[in-house]
């Protein structure tokens, strides 16, 4: 008996050779671009136990807050910083179009200060972020040790040791982290209707509110010190489960 799956495998499309003129012209256009391995955008952060090293400053790809401080409120500071970044040549911030206003994803106190994470999208689908980790209230974006920002780039690829994945969606950002600041979690719900994020794992059973603007959530979860991973379940305002995501704390 032929199964539906068998039928579907028989329907597999055969790749067709590209149209010669288009193929030749497009290849020439691409090769005319300077691959510039020394200056092109590079992976600009790695998982790390050290917060200050969370972003890898690759040339001009990750900037510090120097010129960004002292310009209005935190959202304006973040926006100015990201705009500066986007205008810096040969960075992952180039070509993203118009930057939308940054939105606060999460802000919470950790063992060593206040962690703040902002996200901003752009008119061309770019994803930018800024994070602050300082002893103040998290809005000062004090100095380069506590403030990092960037756009696009590549994420640590969970499936390939040393590999990376392109950052294209805001809900790719975040995770469950256990480092010198103690266990913490933050992220952005992939479900627009979600209002609560239920965090469960060994030692932790907590419901976090989801912001209505950024759909962000986050908090320190010291009770999860024994957890290797946690599951976040997204609920709508009627308590219905919309989906879930499992975060595994990075090792090393």
């Amino acid at each position: 008996m032929t199964t539906t799956y068998d039928q579907i495998t028989r329907l597999a499309p055969a790749p067709e050779a590209s149209e010669p003129t288009w193929s030749r012209d497009t290849l020439a256009t691409i090769l005319a671009e300077d691959p510039a391995p020394e200056t092109s955008p590079r992976p600009w952060w790695r998982k790390t136990r050290r917060r200050a090293a969370a972003l890898i400053a690759a040339g001009a790809v990750a900037l510090t807050a120097g010129t960004a401080v002292a310009v209005g409120g935190p959202a304006e500071v973040v926006k100015d910083a990201l705009l500066e970044f986007m205008s810096t040549p040969n960075t992952t911030g180039n070509g993203l179009g118009v930057l939308h206003d940054p939105q606060l994803v999460a802000k919470f106190r950790t063992k060593n200060g206040v962690f703040v994470f902002w996200v901003a999208t752009s008119s061309k689908g770019g994803v930018c972020f800024a994070s602050s980790n300082g002893p103040g209230e998290g809005t000062e974006l004090l100095d380069k040790k506590h403030f990092a920002y960037g756009c696009g780039g590549e994420l640590v690829d969970p499936t390939a040791p040393g590999g990376t994945a392109e950052l294209t969606r805001v809900d790719q950002l975040g995770g469950f982290f256990k480092d010198s600041d103690g266990p913490l979690i933050y992220g952005i719900s992939p479900y627009p209707d979600a209002v609560q994020a239920h965090v469960q794992g060994p030692g932790v059973d907590r419901t976090l509110p989801i912001r209505s603007d950024s759909h962000g959530y986050g908090d320190a979860i010291p009770e999860a010190s024994g957890a290797r991973a946690v599951t976040v379940t997204f609920l709508d305002d009627a308590g219905h489960v919309l989906g879930s995501k499992r975060w595994v704390a990075p090792v090393g």
């Binding site: 790390t48 969370a54 994070s131 640590v156 969970p158 989906g243 879930s244 499992r246 704390a249």
Partner: peptide, 14 residues
Amino acid sequence: GPMTVEVLNEGGIR
């Protein structure tokens, strides 16, 4: 029903 997506800190950003 909703699916559970297994992600190993896809973001990996701190």
